[in-house]
Each structure stands twice: as C-alpha cells, then as structure tokens.
Nucleic acid binder design. Sequence first.
DNA 1: ATGAAAGCGCTAACAA
DNA 2: TTGTTAGCGCTTTCAT
Lengths: 342, 342
Amino acid sequence: MATIADVARRVGVSTTTVSRVINNFSLVNAETRKRVLVAIEELHYSPSIIARGMRGQKTRSIGVVIPDFRSYWYSELLNYIEIEARNHDYLAIICSTEIDPARELEYLNDLLQRQVDGLILCWYRGSTEKYAFLRNIIKRVPLVVMDQPATGFNASSVYTDGYKGIKKITKGLIAQGHQSVAMIVADKRYSEIARRYHGYRDAMRESGRNVDRTLIVEQDIGFNAGYDGARTLFSSARPTAIVTADDLTAIGVLQYCHDNSISVPKDVSVTGFDNILISGFVTPRLTTISQPAEDLARSAVSQIMRKIGNKRARNQEIVFEPKIILRESTTLKSSDLEKEAG
Amino acid sequence: MATIADVARRVGVSTTTVSRVINNFSLVNAETRKRVLVAIEELHYSPSIIARGMRGQKTRSIGVVIPDFRSYWYSELLNYIEIEARNHDYLAIICSTEIDPARELEYLNDLLQRQVDGLILCWYRGSTEKYAFLRNIIKRVPLVVMDQPATGFNASSVYTDGYKGIKKITKGLIAQGHQSVAMIVADKRYSEIARRYHGYRDAMRESGRNVDRTLIVEQDIGFNAGYDGARTLFSSARPTAIVTADDLTAIGVLQYCHDNSISVPKDVSVTGFDNILISGFVTPRLTTISQPAEDLARSAVSQIMRKIGNKRARNQEIVFEPKIILRESTTLKSSDLEKEAG
DNA sequence: ATGAAAGCGCTAACAA
DNA sequence: TTGTTAGCGCTTTCAT
C-alpha cells in the first residue's frame, strides 16, 4: 500500500506538496503537479481515509442503525439512504440490531468509536438509560431519528405521520359500512407503533365505536405475526376489516385468509403500511399506506449534512404525509376516504 | 471526546499504562488498574478505532459489496453476515452497487482506503480491467467471492450450486410430463446466472428436448421482469412450466398468471430460486430452490477470518447443495425429482 | 511555490 | 510494574 511519502520520494518533493496536489490546492507549480499525478498513478496511490480521519477528525461516513435487514421496508429505505449519502460523497455504515435494544447501544458506541460524522437511528426503543446515553451522543455528533418522532431527548427526526394514515384508512373503512374493524399491532414501546395504534383508536372513538379489546391483537411484526394474529381474530371477533401497522403483517393475514377460504376483500378487507415493493405483487394486491422512502432518506441525510456544516443548526422535525394506496385487498374508493377525512 | 491522554492525566499515569489496562495486559498493578478503570468510566472514555487502525493496521471491519438492498435475498444474507461478523467482533460495512459494475470498483476502492481487513464481494460482473483490479486487491486484503464462483482471478468463493438445483428441478418438471418448459433468465454476464441457465439447458438436452429459443426469455431480475417475461411467454410459446432464476421474478410470473386467469399450478407450474421469506407467503406458495443463507454467511466470514489469521492460507471454493422446496406453485412430488436425478 | 515540523490517538520496543 | 519514545499516514501552520 503506497503512502504519501512513497509518492513524495519518487517525485523528489515533500509530502506537503503531494498533499496539496491531492487536495487540489492551486498553489502548486503546474509542472510539479503533473509529475506528482504521474507518480500517484504509477504507484496506485490512494490516500488513507483512516489517516485523514485521524488528522482532520472527519471520516466522511455516517452510521445508520436499523432494526432488521429482513423487514424489507428498511431495505428500500437503505437503498435511498445510501444513494443520498453517496451524493454527498459520504459512506453509509449500516448496522442492524435485530430488534435487540441492547444492541442499539453497542452499535451506537461502535460507530462513535469509528468516528462517524453523523448518525441515523431508526426505530429505537426508548428507556431512561438510553435517553441519557443519546443525550450524550448528540453533543458530539449530529443524530437524526428516523421513522418515528424523537421522544425522550432532543434531536432531529424524519418520519411519516402514521397516526394520520391509520386514522384515515380506519375511518374510511368505517364510512364504508364496516361494523367491526380490527387492528393487529406490534410492540407499542416503539413510539411510532403507538402512534399508529392511536390513529386506529381515535378513528374508532370519533365514529362512536367501542375500542373493543377483542378487536386488537398485539403481535410482533412480520408474516407469521400476521398469520397468527388473523387466526386469533377469526376465532373470536370475526372482523370484516383488519388494519395492520406494516405490510408484512398484512401479507400474513392475506395468507391466513386464503388458507381458510376467507375471501379478501369480499369477506374481509385488509390494509398494510409502508407500501413495500412486494405489496403490489401479492394476490390480492395489498391496499396500504405509502411512505415516501426517497424523501425520507433525502431529508434524513440532509439534516445530518446541515449539522455537519453548522454545529449549531437547530433540530427539525420533518413529517411526511402518508398516502393511501388503494388496491385489491379492500373495496375502498377514494370517496370513502374523503367522506370522513379530518 | 475523551482520549487516552485525558485518562492518563486524570489518574496520574502514562498513556501506556492506560493502554495496557484497556487491552487487558496482566502486568498492571491491581490498584492502578482499578483507578484507571474508574477514570475511564468517569470520562466516558472509549478508544478510537481510527487511531488503533492507524497504529496497528487493523480496523476490525470487513467490507461487503452487494448488488441491491431491494433484492430481498441479500437482505437475508446480510442478516447472517452481520451476525457472523459480530461473532468475531468485526463490523460489516455494507455497500450496494445498484447493479452498476462501475460502482463495484468505486466501493472496493473506498473500502480499501478505509482499510477494511477483508472483503466479501457478491455478484460482481467480470471484465478484463476488473480482473486486473481484483488481482491487485487480493494481494493486500483477503477477498471472498460470494454467491457465485470466482472466475477470472484467484480467490476464495462461497456459493450454492445453482446449476445443479435448476437442472434437477427442470428434469423433475420434464419427468412429470411437461412438454414445454420455459425459463426466464437474467443477465448471463453474471457467472452464476449463466450457470443456472446452463442447468436448464442441460436438463432439456439430456431429456432430448430442443432448447427452443422461444422458451427462453432474457430479463432483468425482479417482479416486473417476471411479469413481463410471463407476458412474452404466453403470447407465443405458451409453456406449461416456467423456471426462473430468482423468487422475485417467479412472483412476478405468479401475478401475471393471476391477472390473466391462468391457474397455477393447474395451467402452468412456476419455480423460483433463493427461498426468500416472502416466497412462503404468496398465493400460491412458491416452489423454489433454497440456498442455505446462514451457512453461506458463516463460511464467507470464516474464510476471511482464516486469511486474516494466516496471510498465506490457501483459497477455498465452498459449494453448498441447493435444496428444492416443494410448495403450491407446482404439482411436483419428491418422487418426480428422484426419477431423473443425476 | 515549496518544505520542515508538529500533532491527531494509539500501541509497541525498549528502558528503568 | 511503569514510563519514554517513536511512529502509523496524513494535513496544517509557519517559514523560506
């Protein structure tokens, strides 16, 4: 691995001069610059980011902490986060906690030790120690909370308004005449999950419905969660509509219905959340609530960049509008949605 | 950010002593050690991996280059790669090239500048310049090719035998009596795609079938590719079985069939490859060829570790057996598979 | 237009 | 058992 000294030696100049060339300073003789460039080429030299980081305290990298690679939603988000980071000439270092709150702290620490210049934290679960820890982190490095509001400490956040989305779709279902609308919901210790649940609850209440405990099933997230949740619901409450907090869960519901000859949407309507790619390719195609992945990613990265540029930049909370995507797993029409909107 | 010097100063010892404590050397007075530990705690000190890398030339990180976060298959692989890396106390730095061969080189270079201790390269597309580049890389850092054989240069590789899997399933379909078995295949410049295609071709030939050009559709990978490919096939060849090289494509086919009232598996059998999570949750559940994601990940990481431990360790090619997963998108039985096996 | 020297945070040789 | 010193590869004053 050639170093800057190797290049300098070969050309017969100082390392300073080489440094000036690679950093595009003008104050280098054109002739010298040319010879340096040639030597760099010949030696296949490329500067060590490690050494630069050591010196300049900047590593041109941002850490991204997500709960699970297999959630598919984050796969799509990651895609855009990476593109956006690269547009700024940054590297995204991505870590998955496998939904283990302890691992969140481990990774955050590791990333800090590696001197990332910024942090995007998705979907963390709060706790008092963690808030203390996070409050400490944000003194050192810009942090953006993604996919949920930043609760418990003061940071920027970027997310889609799941409360609003779920409330609207629930009201739409009620407006359409559904008598019993159920919800399968995940761990409410995640603040955005709680918000989505509240969207459902408030829609029910405002429409004068009981928020019947038998209509609410708490599950993990994922295909099996949806499948099992549907089983629970159909063994007692027998709802005519099921609202879920993510597409994977909804797809699990779809499968349970298919296996048990429950026709979707004739017997039961099913809705998801996220609008991941697959949801447009299942049978029936899934009605869901779309998050603007690209916008979310762009905003999150911009927030980081803004703070890197200006340490004292104020925190911002950027909330995107959810968009309901009407497909085949419901018989909802956009008019149903408008009827009860607000 | 507290440094080792801060800790040393506070305790009134040298940085060397602190270093010895954090690296668990025994030759430190128990009393001193205790005081150092306290100071570390108080100052929230944690060693800079950057500085350590600078000094020791080791960063405890491996670079992973994949084609696309949204392929879902890699999502599942990444999950295990990360776990495995963490088991060795390494960080996996993951980059997606978005299937852009030029970006493969960019990321490889970036990762090298960041002094990763090893590299896992998934699904690269060969070219003469690239081989030269890769040959250069492997002099400096251990590299494992994943998900396909290492062609064009000498490196370790870890992959599933797609040739065998596709050949076996194709023969099974033929044994079952299918007269026209089609294949939707992706860019054959990826060596593993070519191998999968050859599995189909050889199965056809060995069964005395023509490898009819109208039965082979070349497409990108993904849902839409499958949908479009199916349209092409049904507008002319009208096959009774469609073999694909990945689950996403197969799911696209499933949807085309559903939209056009072609019953699966009654009118046409459909098979995938990878056995990603979703393939067990579509309707009908997808018959596919499973890759052992966890084993693949574990082997790839082990290869790297072996080479990190011993620079001169020999390259290995580790090939896993594909496993056919019989589900609802075919009427295949395991007896059909055995009939023509070999 | 160029170079010498210091220093980023750490560890390893060597000395005490 | 502990400390001194040098140096990893780079950039940045400060000279010249």
